[in-house]
């Protein structure tokens, strides 16, 4: 079982739709501890991505991811632009030339994307950032892969680990980004970046359960 290029395109569309539906919620989370623009920024970026997808639909998965990354860098702004942009560009490097992905390929892509986010943002798990959803999501994916799980069950495990990681940001005191200026007052709020990153892994599980 593999993840086809069409499945990748469907995932990107589903992620864009989820961001669009939850833009106000993400912005509310960001207003609580940041500057109140995460939903609007991510929505602007993913809507821009949607307009570029038809033109690159016949390319390999690596090229698609790289184009998505470049588009996000130039349209999202804030910290999320370079972070999500770098993530997709690195995922593109890891999947260059591929027309479909095995579970191993997907793990490699996620690892490359994760490493890119860490390199660009210099955050560690527990800093109350998107890393807190991505790190457990990636770890669960690796554990499932090592246990010989199917793609849908590995993705489901990854999505629920990301959800737990997202929820676990609530009591944390932020140590990176604008929320860190609040010190102790950042505790008690869910991190908006961890929330959008959770959507990324949830929509992958949703989309590829049906199409794989």
């Amino acid at each position: 079982m593999t993840i086809s290029r069409d499945a990748i395109l469907d995932w990107l569309k589903t992620f864009a739709a989820t961001i669009n539906e939850n833009a106000a919620y993400l912005t509310q989370l960001d207003s609580d501890i940041g500057d109140g623009d995460h939903g609007a920024n991510m929505n602007r970026g993913m809507q821009a991505v949607l307009t570029t997808l038809p033109g690159i639909a016949d390319k390999d998965i690596g090229s698609i991811f790289k184009t998505v990354g470049m588009k996000l860098v130039s349209t999202v702004g804030g910290a999320s632009g370079p972070l999500y942009g770098t993530m997709f560009m690195q995922m593109g490097n890891a999947t260059a030339g591929k027309m479909e992905l095995t579970l191993d390929d997907w793990v490699a892509a996620m690892q490359a994307g994760y490493d890119g986010v860490v390199m660009r943002g210099k955050a560690q798990p527990g800093d109350k950032t998107m890393i807190d959803a991505l790190a457990p999501g990636l770890n669960a994916l690796k554990v499932e892969r090592d246990n010989g799980a199917s793609i849908p069950s590995a993705l489901n495990a990854s999505a629920s680990a990301a959800q737990q990681g997202m929820t676990a940001t609530i009591p944390l005191v932020a140590r990176k980004g604008r929320a860190s200026y609040l010190g102790e007052r950042s505790a008690g709020h869910q991190d908006p970046g961890a929330t959008s990153s959770c959507y990324l892994l949830e929509t992958a599980a949703e989309t590829w359960n049906m199409t794989s």
């Binding site: 500057d35 109140g36 623009d37 609007a40 860098v73 130039s74 702004g77 804030g78 632009g81």
Partner: peptide
Amino acid sequence: PGAVFTSPTPD
């Protein structure tokens, strides 16, 4: 100039 309260982008 970026969007309101949002950093401009590298391009």
